[in-house]
Amino acid sequence: MNSRDKILARLRATPRPAECAPAHRLADRAIYHDCDGGSEELIARFGARLTQLQGEFHRAADVKAAAEVLLRITDDSAGGRCIAHAHPLIRSVLDQNERLAEGIELPDPGTLDSPDFAQYEIGITAADYLVARTGGIVLHAAGAGGRRMSVLPPFHIVLARRDQVVSSLDEALARIRETSSGSGYGTIITGPSRTGDIEKIIILGAHGPKRLAVVLIG
């Protein structure tokens, strides 16, 4: 017998408790404070949470306004190189403003394996969902320029549409399950990278981005 079979045999040999109650799970959701309301309320909740976590929250009425916001926040990042994922939403924003489009590299998705991300100051990606209750950003690698673009550059900017805001983690996970079944890597980002490992003092930008901004369009 190999070790796999030995371990499984040992586990099988142990007496099992007669019954367990699996079904309830989170069906009633009575354990968390409610996070309901119309989409405006959810957006406000998300923005407030993200800001509390020291992320930045920007709103833009349309792609044109989003381009202006992007120009402003990338400008004050002192001329560092900027890379973006060629996602349709990001393209449509960059198309609005020539000066913006010039300053941002938009490599072909097929070549994203090669860039040395250490060279970049800013990474711009899309996301799947924004979670109102926790201020979380849910993304999967294939939809956000890979595993590295959202973590290596010190400033991560997320572009999203208002219909991507969901109330709870529960809802976000349920939707992920329906949509990205084959995807290899997903992450839930809740605020900029931080550490409290030295005397519990919170320092931003431990290994991941020190600055995190969400631009919500619509």
Partner: peptide, 16 residues
């Protein structure tokens, strides 16, 4: 800050 969910190595639709 991060909760990462990983399913296997780089997949065909992944860039890295």
């Amino acid at each position: 800050c991060y909760a990462s969910i990983v399913r296997g190595p780089r997949q065909p639709d992944e860039a890295d």
